Computed example of a mutant assay.
Amino acid sequence: MVAYRNAVAADADDVMSFWSTAAEDSHRPPDSSDAVLRLIERDPEALILAVDNDVVVGSIIVGWDGWRCHLYRLAVAPTHRRQGIGRRLVELAEDRFASYGGTRADAMVLDDNSQAHAVWSTAGYAPQPEWSRWVKPLSNT
């Protein structure tokens, strides 16, 4: 039975292991357990996990900056896909946004990740063609 909960510091290494097999990881700087720990420390409700017998099988990062609602790292283990886990993670994220009075959520989805497009589309999300994401890598110094 899959349970949903907020991540805790002890989950950081398990989350990294999970993302290495379940999440698209191209076109981004490498993640680290330290980054997961910083996220959890800053906002203990930001990383929602789906867990099956203490094994991470799903994740979503729910970012709220006080103005907008942002979704990142929606991933479901290949062994657990097509069971509604991704949909439930998005619902939990949207519930959190609603509790803050959020008015619009955006999701970071790679253009070439067609499998993810279907999930997000089913959840009611669509690309916004008039916007592009601009990025700048920051140094660790």
Rank of each mutant, 00 (worst) to 15 (best):
V2M: 09
Y4D: 02
N6A: 10
A7T: 14
V8D: 11
V8S: 15
A9M: 13
A10S: 07
A10Q: 12
A12W: 06
D14Q: 05
V15G: 00
V15I: 14
S17K: 14
S17H: 09
F18V: 00
W19H: 05
W19F: 11
S20E: 05
T21Y: 08
T21W: 02
T21D: 01
E24K: 08
D25V: 14
S26C: 05
S26D: 10
S26L: 13
R28F: 13
P29A: 13
P29M: 08
P30C: 07
P30W: 09
D31C: 06
D31S: 15
S33F: 01
S33Q: 07
R38P: 00
R38W: 05
L39K: 07
L39E: 13
L39Y: 07
L39S: 14
I40C: 04
D43S: 13
E45D: 13
A46Q: 06
I48Y: 10
L49S: 03
A50C: 06
D52A: 10
D52T: 04
D52G: 05
N53V: 11
N53P: 04
D54R: 05
V56E: 03
S59I: 00
S59Y: 00
I61L: 13
I61D: 07
I61F: 11
I61V: 12
I61M: 09
V62T: 12
G63F: 04
G63V: 09
W64H: 10
D65L: 11
G66L: 06
W67M: 03
W67T: 05
W67I: 03
R68T: 07
R68P: 00
Y72C: 00
Y72N: 04
R73W: 06
R73Y: 01
R73P: 00
R73M: 05
A75L: 06
V76Q: 00
P78D: 06
H80I: 05
R81D: 02
R82N: 11
Q83T: 02
G84H: 02
I85S: 01
G86T: 02
G86Q: 03
R87H: 14
R88M: 14
R88Q: 15
V90P: 01
L92H: 02
L92G: 03
L92K: 01
A93H: 09
A93V: 12
D95R: 10
D95L: 13
R96Q: 13
F97H: 08
S99F: 08
Y100I: 07
G101M: 03
G102I: 01
G102H: 05
T103F: 09
A105G: 06
D106R: 13
D106I: 15
A107G: 10
A107K: 08
V109H: 02
L110N: 09
L110S: 09
D111T: 11
D112A: 12
D112F: 15
N113Q: 07
S114K: 14
Q115H: 14
A116D: 06
A116K: 03
H117K: 02
A118H: 06
V119E: 09
V119M: 15
V119P: 09
V119W: 15
V119Q: 10
W120H: 11
T122Y: 15
T122P: 02
T122M: 14
A123Y: 01
G124M: 07
A126S: 12
A126Q: 10
P127A: 03
P127M: 04
P129E: 05
E130C: 08
E130V: 11
E130T: 14
W131G: 01
W131A: 03
W134R: 07
K136Y: 12
K136L: 09
P137V: 04
S139D: 08
N140P: 08
T141A: 12
